[in-house]
Amino acid sequence: DDFFVATQIAKAAKDGGFDLVLTGKESIDYNGGSVPGLVAAMLDYGFVNGCIGLDVEGSSAKAVREIDGGKETVEVALPAVIAGQKGLVDEAALRIPNMRGIMQARTKQIAVVAPETTESKVEVVGYVKPAERGNVTLIDKDNVAELVRLLHEEAKVI
């Protein structure tokens, strides 16, 4: 769950002594968006969400974030957690590694870190399969009268 993930990131950031923790705004699986905020709370760091621009100078960072109807520039003291989104990194600057880089990466040591034990905040109650879909009736786009009849008599929505 998101609490477990945030606990692991917070532990790694604290043990590593990092002043800046960059995360994504939300995950693609559940779209919860709670992990960056939880990490910031666990570490007692400043937090900027939805960051599309970042400039770090000394012990502070200026972040540009999207808000309703525009952009906002905020300054946050380091250490901080920044939740970035599309626009934070210029896509032209992203590179696909070449074969030499991939082969060199094979020889690098990977530090395996034991997970931090934490109490689960989620309880699985059960799983239910979604209801099966009903039959689909295809209607010619020019047959509006048939569509209205079916919506009225069978679907009973009008």
Rank of each mutant, 00 (worst) to 15 (best):
A155L: 13
G32V: 01
M99D: 07
N98F: 03
R65P: 04
P36D: 05
S34A: 08
I139Y: 07
P36M: 04
K141E: 13
A131V: 12
G37L: 00
G33I: 00
I9T: 07
A155N: 09
D68P: 07
K11Q: 15
V56M: 00
G16L: 09
K71W: 00
I158D: 05
G87Q: 05
Q8M: 08
K141W: 01
D90P: 00
V5P: 01
A40M: 01
V89T: 15
K71T: 13
K86G: 08
I139P: 01
S120F: 08
L88P: 02
I96K: 12
V112S: 13
S59H: 10
V113M: 11
E119P: 07
L22I: 14
R149H: 12
L94E: 06
V144E: 13
D55Q: 10
D140N: 12
A93E: 14
H152A: 15
L20D: 05
M99A: 13
L138N: 06
P97K: 08
V157S: 11
A92W: 09
L20N: 06
K108G: 03
A77G: 10
G87M: 06
V81M: 04
T23A: 02
A40S: 07
V5R: 01
A40F: 02
V21S: 05
E146T: 11
G84W: 02
R65N: 07
P36Y: 01
D29Q: 03
A92V: 12
D44R: 06
D142G: 05
G84T: 10
E75V: 14
E146A: 14
Q85Y: 01
E123R: 15
K156Q: 13
A13R: 10
Y127C: 09
L151E: 06
V76S: 04
A80E: 03
R106W: 03
A145I: 10
H152V: 09
V35R: 01
G37K: 00
V122K: 05
T118Y: 10
A93K: 15
K108T: 09
D1Y: 06
V39M: 05
G53P: 01
E26F: 00
C51M: 10
G37F: 00
P97M: 06
V112G: 07
A63T: 04
A145G: 08
I158L: 14
S60I: 01
I110K: 11
F4V: 11
K141V: 12
N135Q: 15
R106K: 15
E153Q: 13
I139R: 05
